[in-house]
């Protein structure tokens, strides 16, 4: 984990040092390394029995039909981002691959991508958020869900259970 953290830090430092030439690539690299150095992560074959969390602070939950996931950002992320003022939702019908940026959350201080851990098709979006972005702060893991995705059956990787995610955020805090 130490390696990953320092890579991410390096990426962030590069940002700080060269503000005019921020490349996405540094972050992509950091993320790619992260995913490749994640021995604790589960892999599930399109089955998520309970709510799962990603290292990018999204949550997903599989519906009773066994193929439709609901995706949102975690309470931890919502609180860290601060007052959300705009959410860019994906379009319904959009085909997406795991790791894609499917939308964005804008707070006063920053813009953050929403990354999907699931491949498939967006079948619904939470339009309430367009009118009331505050719902994302008030109920990020409930009424503030972002979209529903019909999975294409490929494995969903890099997910954590609630306890593991909590430990992960505590580790992040400590760094």
């Amino acid at each position: 984990m130490a390696t990953r953290t320092s890579l991410l830090r390096t990426a962030c430092r590069a940002h700080a040092a060269a503000p005019q030439s921020i490349s996405r690539s540094a972050f992509v690299t950091a993320q790619w390394r992260r995913q490749n150095q994640a021995p604790r992560m589960f892999s599930v074959a399109a089955k998520v029995q309970e709510k799962k969390y990603t290292k990018d602070h999204e949550w997903i939950e599989l519906g009773e039909d066994g193929k439709t996931y609901t995706l949102g950002i975690t309470s931890y992320a919502a609180s860290a981002l601060g007052d959300v003022i705009y959410i860019e939702l994906p379009s319904s019908g959009l085909e997406i691959g795991a790791g894609d940026a499917i939308g964005a959350v804008e707070s006063v201080k920053s813009a953050s991508d929403i990354l999907t851990p699931v491949s498939g098709t967006v079948v619904a979006t939470n339009e309430v958020l367009e009118e009331k972005p505050k719902v994302l702060n008030d109920s990020p893991e409930g009424d503030g869900w972002i979209c529903r995705i019909e999975g294409d059956g490929t494995d969903v990787e890099g997910l954590m259970g609630v306890g593991e995610y909590k430990a992960f955020t505590e580790e992040e805090e400590a760094h």
């Binding site: 991410l8 830090r9 990426a11 962030c12 430092r13 940002h15 700080a16 503000p19 921020i22 996405r24 972050f27 993320q31 290292k55 990018d56 602070h57 999204e58 950002i73 931890y76 992320a77 860290a80 981002l81 601060g82 940026a101 964005a104 959350v105 201080k109 920053s110 813009a111 953050s112 991508d113 929403i114 990354l115 955020t169 992040e172 805090e173 400590a174 760094h175």
Partner: peptide, 28 residues
């Protein structure tokens, strides 16, 4: 896209903002 970054990066910084990137957070 200069302003794009995963939530993890932002959350990290804000939660434990030892390394603040600039593009996204105009603050720093």
């Amino acid at each position: 896209m200069a302003s794009k970054r995963p939530i993890s990066a932002t959350a990290r910084l804000i939660a434990s903002p030892r390394t603040v990137p600039r593009a996204v957070c105009p603050l720093q």
